[in-house]
Write a protein that binds this DNA or RNA. Structure first.
Length: 411
DNA sequence: TGTCCACTGGAAGGGAGGGCTT
DNA sequence: AAGCCCTCCCTTCCAGTGGACA
């Protein structure tokens, strides 16, 4: 037993340092992103001369390097600024995780050392505090708004962005620079033209990595992450190819490689092979689902069990009405007050965005208009993850009566 | 061609939980 | 402590709709 721990501590026979394969690890160079780095660097450079920088908008799908390139350049910029004795604050906010306009501004306030309660204040008030903090500090503030599209779509007003782009007008010495990151290329269509013209002063496009480019990235990273001669070339190629198939997602490629290595390690094998990568592919997807499910509120979980039950009971996809009927029954069984159908319809849309279910609006003509709903992930992954919650676990083994009735009718 | 179904999704508003001001 | 304001999550209400069917 001790030996196993020792091996892992020593880096094991497979890895030299597995953390180098995590996507939040910042390597010393970012292959195939030299252009974007140079471009971003030149856009932000005026900050070193205490000048205001242009706002910027970066597009590209997941895993195309938007976030890492931004962090990379910002880190270097900040170091340079420090050397030159220039006050430069930076803040990184993931808008999807943070959720609402209020919480985004509250987050920004906190980076500037201003205390803000998590609720209770008006957005305008929090915005004022942010303005005051900037005014009194007289410093530059570079703000990265990652997944900025989530903010606009969810709160369906872009007043926050509008206010942020206007803050500079009220500042004499300090300034705020915005870097919006989005993986939705059509996001611009939703924006207020005033915000668009301000935020989109500069644009940076991140194209998906090709299979060859991913190969280079993985090769460079694996040299430092794995022990020598452990990783088979074919395994590396497969990782690159699989991730390239998935819109050139470098994050996915690195995950695959790391998990493949971990599988090989666990099996006490001395080399990482293609079959480990294939196995890793399943596990990576499974882990993603698990992570998403863990963050779901109770009603979304119950809803998911409803979709699952329906999927088990019949071959064709179900519609909102069916799901809602099963959901109501499950709620009763669990002694939980059910939400309204309107709300459930909204929750289904949220699950659809997360990719947990597929919900598509269809019309059955005379028989109405509704959403067709199917599971978007494997049923097994759901039962495995939801089973950890006691209440939901009991629902997983509950057989809804309304389903039996429907089956009789079908027969 | 009009009807009608089963919803969708926007809008408004309520109330729980909270902060600020007086 | 009271009164006011806020956000967040939800409900209620309802106009709108794509397309099968008579």
């Amino acid at each position: 037993m001790d030996l196993i721990f020792e091996q892992v501590l020593a880096g094991g026979e497979i890895f030299r340092d597995r953390n180098l394969l995590r996507h939040d690890y910042m390597p010393s160079s970012l292959p195939h992103r030299e252009d974007q780095i140079k471009r971003l660097g030149s856009i932000l450079a005026p900050a070193l001369a205490k000048d205001r920088v242009s706002n910027l908008f970066a597009y590209g799908k997941t895993g195309t390097g938007k976030t890492i390139v931004t962090r990379y350049v910002l880190e270097r910029l900040q170091r340079k600024a420090k050397d030159h004795g220039i006050a430069l604050n930076t803040s990184y906010v993931n808008c999807r995780l943070v959720g609402t306009s209020y919480r985004v501004i509250a987050d920004l306030c906190r980076t500037l050392g201003v205390d803000v309660p998590f609720t209770g204040l008006a957005v305008g008030e929090v915005l004022d505090r942010l303005r005051n903090a900037l005014r009194t500090r007289n410093s530059a503030f570079l703000v990265v708004l990652d997944e900025i599209d989530a903010l606009v779509k969810r709160s369906d007003d872009d007043s926050l962005l509008y206010e942020l782009t206007r803050i500079n007008e009220s500042l004499s010495d300090g300034w705020i620079g915005l870097i919006g990151i989005s993986n939705d290329l059509h996001f611009k269509d939703f924006l207020d033209p005033r915000v668009l013209s301000s935020l989109g002063e500069e644009e940076l496009i991140f194209k998906p990595y090709s299979s060859e480019e991913l190969h280079d990235i993985l090769e460079e990273r694996s040299k430092i992450a794995f022990q020598p001669r452990v990783l088979e070339e074919a395994a590396l190629r497969l990782c690159a190819a699989l991730a390239a198939g998935e819109h050139g997602d470098a994050r996915r490629a690195l995950d695959l490689l790391r998990v493949a290595g971990e599988i090989a390690e666990r099996n006490r094998e001395s080399r990482v092979l293609e079959r480990h990568v294939r196995e890793a592919q399943q596990k990576v997807e499974h882990d993603r689902v698990k992570e998403v499910l863990a963050s779901l509120p109770l009603h979304s979980r119950v809803l998911l069990v409803s979709v699952l039950d329906l999927e088990k009971a019949r071959s064709e996809s179900s519609v909102t009405g069916d799901v809602y009927a099963v959901y109501r029954e499950l709620c009763t069984a669990a002694s939980v007050e059910p939400l309204t159908q309107r709300r459930v319809s909204g929750l289904l849309n949220e699950l659809d965005i997360m990719g947990i279910v597929n919900a598509r609006v269809v019309s059955f003509g005379r028989y109405g208009r509704t959403k067709k709903i199917r599971l978007g992930v494997e049923a097994r992954a759901i039962t495995a993850s939801l089973g950890e919650d006691q209440l939901v676990k009991s629902l997983l083994s509950y057989a809804p009566r309304c389903l039996h009735k429907q089956q009789h009718l079908n027969a």
